[in-house]
Amino acid sequence: MSLITGSQAAADDSPPHVETDEVTIVVATRNRPDRLAETAAHHRAPVIVVDNGSDEPIRLPGADVVRLDANLGAAARNIGVERARTPYVAFADDDSYWAPGSLARAAALLNAHPQAALLTAEIRIGAAGRLDPVSAAMAAAPLGTPPGAAGPSVLGFLACAIVVRRDTFLAAGGFQPRLFVYGEEALLAMDLAAAGHQLSYVPSLTVRHFPEPAGRDPRGRRRLEARNRLLTAVLRRPPAVVARAAMAVLCSEPAALGDVLRQLPWAVGSRRRLPTPVEQALTRLAVE
């Protein structure tokens, strides 16, 4: 994979109102320069943009742009994290940004909670700031809050709303390239928890998200989500969970089964069971 890298503007073009020198924002994007320009104006930390093989090279003054010659999906974020030189990395999509004060607050929390590998923020959608249902579910705290943790425990998240410890993220392998996009977060959450790290929901951190109403390809997204749910189960979950996941895919997105079969030798070869407490927590979430 060849890369074209480099800062695209002089220092006086850097983003205004930088909140902290401990966080880098990593944004993976493809073919949406206008959306990226809109949200980038709100970023309050140094920015690394990973251009996922856009048809025309992305240019963003003040950002360090890494251009890939192919679309790596979610794994493009890994390249941005590798390039970062701060202890913490916040992810954003080209249609999202962190609300003022959130990045500095996240850095302070990670400094104060050394067991925390990942903090996930409250997500507010659109101009009206509607609470994302994912955030509402996290706020219910079904897994409770461990003593001394930064917030309620989670075993899932949306990538555009997390701040991670750079070294811990890389040690866990980052986002799995074979999952590409949609649902790629679940495997990383499991692996971080399996390694003994805390993952916490912190509603005092806020992300503003402005997704397109229908998305780019709703039908393709559903198929990829179904494939990734089943592959993730094969990679980490007990046989009974794998069987239920396969039946769910067969009923909802049968075409995804063929996609899974093509990846099955790799998934079985990479299979690793989770520690009992992590598996029990996932089971509890499934019945909530």
Score class of each variant (00 low, 15 high):
residue 42 H to P: 03
residue 84 A to W: 01
residue 31 N to A: 09
residue 271 R to M: 08
residue 115 Q to G: 13
residue 36 L to C: 06
residue 252 S to F: 12
residue 19 E to G: 12
residue 62 G to Q: 06
residue 160 C to M: 15
residue 149 A to F: 09
residue 72 L to G: 02
residue 275 P to G: 09
residue 146 P to C: 11
residue 115 Q to W: 09
residue 208 R to C: 04
residue 77 R to P: 02
residue 95 D to V: 03
residue 14 S to I: 05
residue 204 S to Q: 13
residue 91 F to H: 05
residue 221 R to P: 04
residue 271 R to C: 11
residue 230 L to V: 06
residue 35 R to F: 01
residue 199 L to D: 01
residue 267 A to L: 11
residue 35 R to C: 05
residue 125 I to D: 08
residue 78 N to S: 02
residue 66 V to I: 15
residue 187 L to S: 07
residue 109 L to H: 03
residue 246 A to F: 10
residue 87 P to R: 08
residue 273 R to Q: 13
residue 42 H to K: 11
residue 280 Q to L: 15
residue 119 L to G: 07
residue 41 A to W: 00
residue 34 D to K: 06
residue 241 V to Y: 01
residue 285 L to P: 04
residue 101 G to K: 12
residue 259 D to E: 13
residue 214 A to L: 13
residue 262 R to K: 15
residue 158 L to Q: 14
residue 64 D to W: 04
residue 217 D to H: 09
residue 150 A to T: 01
residue 134 V to Y: 10
residue 224 L to S: 11
residue 76 A to T: 10
residue 89 V to S: 03
residue 165 R to I: 07
residue 111 N to D: 15
residue 44 R to G: 02
residue 121 A to D: 03
residue 170 L to F: 06
residue 145 T to F: 08
residue 147 P to A: 14
residue 19 E to F: 07
residue 229 R to P: 00
residue 148 G to Y: 09
residue 96 S to Y: 07
residue 266 W to F: 12
residue 201 Y to T: 05
residue 20 T to A: 07
residue 283 T to W: 09
residue 57 P to R: 14
residue 162 I to Q: 00
residue 133 P to M: 10
residue 197 H to I: 06
residue 221 R to I: 06
residue 249 V to E: 10
residue 190 M to N: 08
residue 265 P to A: 11
residue 227 R to P: 02
residue 159 A to S: 15
residue 13 D to Y: 14
residue 62 G to D: 10
residue 108 A to V: 02
residue 88 Y to I: 10
residue 199 L to E: 06
residue 208 R to I: 01
residue 121 A to P: 03
residue 229 R to A: 13
residue 104 A to S: 13
residue 126 G to E: 02
residue 57 P to N: 09
residue 39 T to G: 00
residue 190 M to S: 05
residue 20 T to L: 04
residue 189 A to H: 02
residue 49 V to K: 10
residue 129 G to F: 09
residue 151 G to A: 08
residue 256 A to H: 06
residue 110 L to S: 08
residue 73 G to F: 03
